[in-house]
Design a binder for these strands. Structure first.
Lengths: 349, 349
DNA sequence: ATCGGGGATGTTATCGGTAACATCAGGTGC
DNA sequence: GCACCTGATGTTACCGATAACATCCCCGAT
């Protein structure tokens, strides 16, 4: 017996309880003494209905506790209100907040998200998952976190509904214009001004679009200052990966730029165990600004991203594709550097 | 323009592309020269079809790339394959993994999860959300993280489909038998053996069922040993709350038992800033064993919970209610104590 | 040769909505 | 006073599947 699955006996009784059969517009029509079409019209907000008739129908609606049958509705209208969302690793804080934002945006627009989590370990999971979402009758398909493989599979697949491939939390990937690139440049610039010259990057998985963008921004910011990166270690976004990477760091590196906060946490611990002080000997930065980052020890300097807003924006773009012009695409606040205590002057300055 | 919403021009082209109209069983039937019913039978695995006919139909199926219209199917069968899931705060690691487990279990059984995230700030959000899920035609409704208010609202509501109220990650709440209670007793016992006598609890929100259970287990474990708790500080599961609570801790407390790992992280930082060493002066424990907990500084002693399995188990119980006997309810591995470096002998021992 | 039976397949009704068209009553114009 | 228009409402068809019932055909038993 599992904890989560547990319940009181009371629950059990209530859980099974339910009304016999849901009322249809025909039931309502009969009770109100009108035709089912009149009911349908009223439900759709059609204006030309006599006040008295309207009242009778509304009464009947309430009496029978009418709820529309969505299957029937989407059968006739030919469009459902479900959106298929593909994502990796929903338990990672970044992606999960993106999903949260997307789900909220969908709900506001009267849609629901059908979330399909991809299993990292499954080789042909992508194709299979794309197949699954494509089978169901969806209003649209959105990919919220993408790898190279995902991108390729997505391009190959012919979807029968509008689809949208979000480039993860990073964006266009253009180091000159992407908001995150600007923030990254700002971050590197601040460290440069503090005297740092040897930088190392803790990247995400090499095949993730987000990793690629983040690394590109990092490299661009270095190049702009005439610096060459000490190297990039690719991890899997986990603290364990950050720990491992930081354990075998070159001695001359004074600044570690991590592609997310969790890996930075691992790096923090590895450095501490190696007897190197942060920020005395090495400065460490994160990316995302998850809520915990402010409570790492030392509190983490990072780049704040509004992932919820990004998820909402991505979903709204899909909605715009489903019914153009109907939705206003929100502008997310730009990424910004948050300076805390994990960064400081380069040693010897 | 938001990062997440961004894409290459290439995406844009493909995104809009889609086939004109999906093939129906009638299209397939016509192409194969049979009746639509024959197609339907074949799709349902009806055995009595001549091999030659079967072949023709399968050919047509493939040619037209047939996909069933789920709306039509659930309209006739009278049952959908969507499950409404209500949860708080999907960005918290614990709940989000529960959702992940539930979603995976649902998908395996051929259902999809329609996730509704409750807004904490919204006072009557619960009623409204219950209303929303109850409106849609769902196969079942599950509540994955519950507060007292949620529990009450759930009991008041008359659902038209099977419903299930998971008692969050904790379970029955019986301090004598719940697996988590056993682990908590083990944890307290180990600290007791290390000489700790003054314990303080960092609890979750007072109205959360999970908080109540966790605190009850904590108190029961103390009582069993003739101890009295120094007190409970109720936080909102966040590191910030843990930080605040630990900042005003009584001097004689030597062990802080947090109800989740994030709050423990906050406590760790607060103690460090107050000049109290962990575990030299104070021992700190978490709960959940999120992946990052092993990389806190010091690495956190905590109770490992398989939240993904719990989510799957909870969902399977709902499925069992939807179609009894068809699903096997998995048994999740029990909770267990994971000793790391944030705990040690009480000072002066 | 005829009838019965059962396997393979076809026909029709149905689910609960929406859309298109039909009807009906009352008021207006001439 | 009658044709006509229009606003309110009713009727019918249809979406794409499944279920129930009907039919057809072939084969063996009598």
């Amino acid at each position: 017996m599992t904890d989560a699955a547990d319940e009181t006996a009371d629950d059990r009784d209530r859980g099974g309880a339910r009304s016999a059969r849901a009322a249809t517009i025909y039931d309502v029509a009969e009770l109100a003494g009108v035709s089912h079409q009149t009911v349908s019209r009223l439900l759709k907000g059609f204006p030309g209905i006599r006040p008295e008739t309207r009242h009778r129908v509304e009464q009947a609606l309430a009496t029978l506790d009418y709820r529309p049958n969505l299957s029937a509705r989407s059968l006739t209208t030919g469009r459902s209100h479900r959106i298929g969302a593909l994502t990796y690793e929903i338990d990672q804080v970044g992606p999960s907040r993106i999903v949260q934002g997307a789900a909220a945006a969908a709900r506001r627009a009267g849609y629901v998200l059908d979330i399909v989590t991809l299993d990292n370990s499954d080789e042909n999971g992508i194709e299979k998952s794309l197949e699954v979402v494509n089978q169901n009758d969806l209003a649209g398909i959105i990919v919220l976190a993408s790898s190279e493989e995902m991108t390729a599979a997505f391009r190959r697949t012919r979807f029968r509904v509008p689809s949208y491939l979000s480039a993860d939390e990073d964006g266009a990937g253009d180091p000159a214009t992407a908001p995150l690139a600007l923030a990254m440049d700002d971050l590197i610039g601040q460290l440069y001004d503090l005297g740092h010259r040897r930088f190392h990057h803790l990247g995400g998985p090499a095949n993730w679009v987000a990793s690629q963008h983040r690394e590109a921004y990092y490299l661009a910011a270095l190049t702009r200052r005439g610096l060459v990166s000490s190297g990039t270690s690719h991890g899997d976004w986990s603290s364990a990966a950050g720990f491992a990477a930081a354990s075998e760091l070159a001695d001359d590196v004074t600044a570690i730029i991590s592609a997310n906060d969790q890996m930075a946490l691992g790096a923090l611990l590895a450095l501490d165990q190696a007897g190197r002080s942060v920020p005395g000997d090495v400065s460490v930065t994160g990316l995302d600004d998850i809520p915990e980052a402010a409570f790492y020890n030392p509190p983490l300097t990072t780049i704040h991203l509004d992932t919820i807003a990004q998820g909402a924006a991505a979903l709204t773009r899909l909605l715009d594709r489903i019914s153009p012009g109907e939705f206003e695409i929100p502008v997310a606040p730009p990424a910004r550097v948050v300076v805390r205590s994990s960064t400081g002057p380069a040693p010897g300055r």
